[in-house]
Write a protein that binds this DNA or RNA. Structure first.
Lengths: 348, 348
DNA sequence: CATTTTTCACGAAACGTTTCATGAATATTG
DNA sequence: CAATATTCATGAAACGTTTCGTGAAAAATG
């Protein structure tokens, strides 16, 4: 009795679905095939630009237009195991260097008809790991990551390109020439007539490429015989330490700096503010050089004199390496050349 | 004869695939089911947190861990027709307002476990349309778009939330209160003692929400009896027009402006530069107010005195509306309150 | 203890593609 | 003109999930 009742429900459900046909859902290849009076495979070929007899092609194309058919990427992805999507892991999108990276990587991916899944991590190692897992189960074709989690676990099967941090021999790393950048900053300060300079940086326990700016700067100073001091902020120390450091030195005429190299433009901006609060003029009293190549509003003049990272080239290289088939041909570390740009906080 | 040859190939292929088992590909639910000795459906239930008998659940979870199984989102998406992904169409990511939007929308989506496909359009109407088509065939659950294509064709089935431009009664639009913002700027300049002000803006033929800043400013000036002039750049005119306009007025003492409202912070920045080139000091000689709430490096102090758009709230509202089930309950236009922030280019 | 009801794991079907063996139709050759 | 070779549209199978009717076992009832 009850069983009969169930069957009636089942039948009525079937009747219902037949009645509804597939009125609301998007047209599929099957619909197109029926409309054009051809086989499923033929439609697939037309859609993918494979050779198909001219009369068939025309009929299929007409049907596609008529039904406003669009391929379902999820069905494609399921079958092909390729999704034409890459994930970008980056701390945030509002710091100029990151924003610029996002923009140029998106552009480089677009050029190759790839989509970009943006994953803003806020420097959170846990979130970074979550995003990696998400990207993998989302079957992205690859991941580009500027990450801070030293223990990031990566699936062997998903290509990964690291930015600014070497993550082992199997994972290519793209970075700008941080050592040369530090050196260049030192040389520039020397050329600009500085007699006593400083290097300021916020500490990072992570062994990443930007750390080499310090060694480059030291090397540059030594080779020019330029005396220098360094102040490296440790974890937990506030920016006030920089203010104390500066006051200590600037109030003592002998040790006063006439040139400062800051590890990033963000820091340079902060330091310039501190100097101005101390009554010092930039660049008249102290020349300041930052690092990154930050511009006002992303595309106007530089916010300070700076060592410019070649962001478009970094982006292009990341995407190039990511989509390159040949795993063997991928170099472990790509270092791209930096340049100096005047931005009003030095004499030239 | 040939036929036999074909069959041999076919058979050997089958033998080959059996030999290879599925050694390299990622584990599937089937593998987990086999490992745990349960049915496929049971694994699915465990993965989706549906009720399953405790002993079964434990065995499945163990198998998942052992095989390091991850669901295939593409198979899920194909079946469920929901992908937990939203697309964001935005001109670029390096202009601060856009960068901030991207960041906060990503955050709001993350909070709801949604992924974000970033589509940087470069103001290109064709690219905007391409991205919309891409998003639709990618079966995203919705699109948030700050677009400039007046003829953008949208699939009825994909929810769309517009930012800053009304796109018809069926598409909700989120924006900040641009009229109130213009008014606030006028009132602020009046409060700061200005006697003769100007409104500068770059023309846009598009009928979007930010255009209301002009009406708001006029309204504010009129209600305070503050004389004002406007200079609106037409398509194709260069920024030099602004310089000419300013020189014309500033060199004539009577008409000299002591307050300027620029339609964006970007423009304000440009104008401040022009004023400084003309030997005028900001804010001593002229006070300048921008619009957007741009900060140095995204999170430091404001780059100029400005009308701040509530970006986090805009982002939250967009995502809220996008993912809201009830289509009817979505209002056509949401206007969020703006505020004034001091940024050094006014007296207070 | 017999009967009815409930519970719940099972596994086949379906989602919309791509791939590829099949065989009919056409083209080439002797 | 016959025999062979080539071309190419066809449609079934597979990709990895979710859904849901089925039926066995357990629980509740008389």
């Amino acid at each position: 009795m009850i069983e009969v009742y169930y069957k009636i429900i089942a039948i009525s459900r079937k009747v219902w679905s037949v009645m509804m046909e597939k009125s609301n859902s998007a047209p599929t290849m099957k619909d197109v095939a029926k409309e054009a009076g051809v086989a499923l495979g033929t439609v697939s070929k037309v859609v993918n630009g494979l050779p198909v007899g001219e009369p068939y092609r025309i009929r299929v194309e007409e049907a596609i237009r008529k039904l406003n058919y669009q391929v379902n990427s999820y069905a494609q992805g399921l079958k092909a195991n390729r999704t034409h999507t890459a994930a970008l892991l980056i701390p945030n999108t509002y710091l100029p260097f990151f924003a610029s990276l996002v923009y140029h990587i998106n552009l480089a991916l677009l050029k190759r008809k790839y989509r970009m899944l943006l994953c803003s991590t806020d420097y959170d190692p846990g979130l970074e790991q979550e995003y990696v897992a998400m990207a993998q189960q989302n079957k992205v074709d690859g991941i580009i990551g500027l990450t801070y989690n030293p223990d990031l676990i990566l699936d062997e099967t998903t290509p990964f390109i690291a930015i600014d941090r070497s993550m082992g021999p199997r994972i290519p790393c793209v970075t700008s020439d941080n050592f040369a950048g530090g050196q260049l900053a030192a040389e520039k300060l020397a050329d600009l007539g500085c007699r006593n300079v400083a290097f300021l940086r916020i500490g990072s326990s992570l062994n990443n490429e930007p750390n080499k700016r310090k060694a480059g700067f030291e090397n540059g100073c030594l080779s020019r015989g330029l005396p220098y001091e360094m102040k490296i902020l440790n974890d937990g120390e506030s920016y006030e330490e920089f203010a104390l450091f500066l006051k200590e030195h600037m109030q003592n005429g002998k040790l006063a700096f006439d040139g400062i190299f800051c590890v990033t433009d963000t820091l340079a901006h902060l330091i310039i503010k501190m100097l101005s609060d101390m009554g010092l003029r930039v660049p008249e009293d102290v020349q300041v050089i930052g690092f990154d190549g930050t511009r006002h509003f992303g595309d106007q003049e530089y916010t300070c004199s700076t060592i410019v990272q070649p962001v478009p080239e970094i982006a292009e290289m990341c995407v190039e390496l990511l989509l390159q088939e040949n795993r063997q041909a991928k170099p472990p570390l790509v270092c791209l050349p930096v340049s100096y740009a005047y931005g009003g906080t030095t004499n030239k």
